[in-house]
Structure formats: C-alpha cells, structure tokens
C-alpha cells in the first residue's frame, strides 16, 4: 500500500476493476462509454459537464482525466473555468437553499 491514498498512476489501473468482478465491471464500462458518445448533447458538452461534476465530487482522478479530455477537444481555459463555476454555484446554492429548512423550523418553533 502506498503512503498516499491517491496516486496518479492508479488512474491507469481503472480498467482493472473488471478483474475482480468481470460482469459488473464490464457492464459499468459499457454504460460509461455509451454515456459519453455523441448524442442529443455533443461529446464536448458532455466533457464539460463531466469536468464540472468532477469538481463538485472532488474526484482527483476525474479532474485529471477530464481536464485532459477537454484540452483534447479544444475547450479553452475560460470555458473550463466557467463550467467549474456552474458546479460551484450549484454546490453553494444547494447549501444555501437548505437555509429555507432552517427558516421553516425556526418559524415553527418560535412563538
């Protein structure tokens, strides 16, 4: 076991998860591949969504992979940062909107 929980080299081993559960692993990668194919959304739009979600999930492997993927697709730094702000806005908005629960509770409890 390495001294760090995260190792960039582990990203290359992602495909090996299939080895310990072939059926589920294969089904996952088939699904994954299908999701990122060109569809009603372009592959580039999907790559930008993936980058934003990678950040809200704070997954280092996903950030590594989808930053590279976006560069490959010609996406600019400005576009990538805007996508991350969308993720950040939803993440902070999701926190704040729960404030209405707090307000409801306070209003119910207080005379």
């Amino acid at each position: 076991m390495a001294n760090n929980y995260y190792d960039p080299a582990d990203l290359r081993k992602f495909g090996k998860i299939t080895e310990w559960s072939e059926e589920l692993g294969t089904k996952f990668f088939d699904y994954y591949g299908k999701v990122f194919e060109e569809g009603a959304l372009t592959a580039r739009e999907k790559a930008l969504i993936a980058l934003a979600v990678a950040h809200t999930e704070q997954c280092p492997y996903c950030i590594d992979a989808y930053t590279k993927d976006n560069l490959q697709r010609g996406v600019t730094k400005k576009q990538m940062m805007e996508a991350i702000h969308v993720g950040a806005a939803i993440k902070s908005g999701a926190t704040l909107v729960h404030g209405t629960m707090m307000m409801n509770k306070v209003n119910k409890l207080e005379m």
Binding site: T42, A43, R44, K68, L71, Q72, R73, G74
Partner: peptide, 17 residues
C-alpha cells in the same frame, strides 16, 4: 496539433469548431 502533452481529438469535430 495539440498545445501540450495531450493527444488530438476527433478531426472532424475540430474542423467544425
């Protein structure tokens, strides 16, 4: 050609862009 240590993406898509 890519501007760094990554590979080019789909040629037809890049041409469109």
């Amino acid at each position: 050609n890519p501007n760094g240590a990554y590979l080019p993406s789909d040629q037809a898509g890049m041409e469109k862009d």
